[in-house]
Design a protein around this nucleic acid. Structure first.
Lengths: 221, 221
DNA sequence: TTATTTCCGTTGTTATTCCAACTGATTTAT
DNA sequence: ATAAATCAGTTGGAATAACAACGGAAATAA
């Protein structure tokens, strides 16, 4: 467990909580650990909201499938990220999305009240936790707006450019690695895989991007 | 001002705060009132985050325009709803969206710290406010996921059906009124207005919906 | 290594959307 | 009441995406 502490310290949910205060907090939260193999589902669409999840290692995907097996990837959450917090905070009756491990992954599941309610013990950091939770929720909101922006674009090329631009911005560099293979990127941008491949090729021959596998480069001007 | 109180009492942000506790709370928040005429912009994309907005009367639109004037409507917020809370909570540097009055509208603008920080006075309801804020943020998250679902649909018909189904669910009835005219619905679903009109007509002649102006009816089998 | 599976790019056909332009209807302003 | 402006539906042609199917490359398993 101790090797997970370094991840938790980088988790935005625990930002601003200093080293010596850390152990009692984690003890107080007392989450359950779960180890998942690739493609294992952690939360099924329709499940009653339970705990808030924290990714300790690996990564998870938030997805939604339509009635005919078309998978749509809503977001990708890496180590240190949290999931299911929105459903829990909203006090929804059922989760509108599924969460599955994108690779070998370890998660911690913690009850909402443990995070949000001041406990009777000496652990006095819940207020900070709540503030952090507000920030995380706000940021997720903005991320969803980012994704919305990609999807509102009419053509595949525009969608791809919108996505790649955002990734470049995040990476702080024109060259970056994306966390998706082609099929997954297609599922994320809601386009056909073959059309995506074709468009990527065209964009490369047009000289506006370069790529090899999952490494992409935007060619400025 | 007193006629606004009834709206504020229905505002989810103030849920669970009883009548007698209400006045001191509102006094404590001491928001600025602003009256906006139709199409007046309250927040410009790129603005530094300031206050959290509460719609007292009328309604506002959250929008984002791309570089060539294509407007996209992200959401519609009626009386009692709040806006700009995500940007503020996320502590973002700039708002990624604009907010404009959809009609003659009155809003209250309140500093984030006023809502979230316990004040020195006897006003002890901030904790409840924060919990409510978590819930509102969570629900907005789920709303964005709903909208994402519409946009991931490939055809105009599917997008329309996805949207109308959600509206019917919200209304709790197969017959309901939507808050958009045709152009606005097109901007919301990210399709062509003319294509939208054509598809609506087809869907009606196919016998799966009926509509007149902004009133729609889903015809279940 | 060999076999198997997964992944990715390509192509041609079909289906849909986008776009522009026009008309009639409704609403708003004078 | 009349004029002007906005809104909604329709149509035809141009552009684009979806779909299906294939082949080769790369990764994985045996």
């Amino acid at each position: 467990m101790s090797e997970n502490f370094s991840v938790l310290k980088k988790c935005p949910l625990f930002a601003g909580i200093s080293g010596s205060d850390f152990n009692p907090l984690i003890t107080c939260l007392s989450g359950k650990l779960r180890r998942c193999s690739k493609d294992e589902t952690i939360i099924f669409e329709g499940d009653a909201p339970g705990a808030v999840g924290i990714v300790l290692s690996g990564s998870v995907r938030v997805t939604k499938d339509d009635y005919f097996g078309n998978r749509n990837i809503i977001s990708e959450i890496g180590a240190g990220g949290i999931f299911a917090e929105a459903v829990v905070c909203a006090q929804a009756e059922a989760s509108p999305v599924s969460v599955t491990a994108a690779e070998e992954t370890e998660v911690m599941l913690t009850g909402y009240s443990k995070i949000v309610t001041s406990c009777s013990s000496a652990c006095g950091f819940h207020n900070r936790l709540v503030m952090n939770m507000l920030q995380v929720l706000g940021q997720k909101n903005l991320s969803l707006v980012d994704k919305l922006e990609h999807l509102t674009k009419r053509s595949t090329r525009e969608k791809v450019l919108s996505y790649l631009s955002e990734q470049a911005k995040r990476a702080g560099s024109d060259s970056f690695i994306i966390p998706f293979n082609r099929q997954e990127l297609a599922d994320y941008l809601s386009v056909e895989r073959s059309a995506l491949s074709a468009e990527l090729s065209k964009m490369q021959s047009d000289g506006i991007i370069r790529f090899r596998k999952n490494r992409f480069e935007l060619i400025g001007k």
